[in-house]
Design a protein around this nucleic acid. Sequence first.
DNA 1: CAATAGATCATCT
DNA 2: GATGATCTATTGC
Length: 156
Amino acid sequence: MIVETEAYLGLKDAASHAYCGVTARNKVMFGPPGFAYVYFIYGMYECVNVVAEREGSAGAVLIRALEPLLGVELMQIRRPGAKRLRDLASGPGKLTLALGITRALNGVDVTKGSLVVRDRRGGEAFEITAGPRIGITKCADWPLRFTIKGSEFVSR
DNA sequence: CAATAGATCATCT
DNA sequence: GATGATCTATTGC
């Protein structure tokens, strides 16, 4: 279950990859919603977004952390360094490693097939809190980071 | 504890 | 040629 996300907007958001217009890398951000935008960062990690704006308008949601409910053993194999459950996917770089998400999935339709995420806890209530974004230098104070209140599985 | 450093490379200027 | 939507290890109080 996803416990932490961040929103990145289009031409008005200096922290967004879409800030300066369409490029080869960010073009899926300008496409229709429901598609995965996967990019490579710091020479080492990949991060997943889901495009969330209509075609022609840029905007995406970065998936920053999740609480492992299914496939825990597989995640542990992919991330041998993780000692605790919360270390498996508590951060955008770790999350893609744990799930085996790579740039090969850039541009895939997330609304079809196996990428659809379901909450197995059956409608258990939770609260979402908004706060400043993490790991960026521009517009970091915009309250576009959303976490499930009280979750132990968010990044720090 | 908190702060800093280093890894490492695709992307954009 | 610099930078970055990160992470881990290491250093310094």
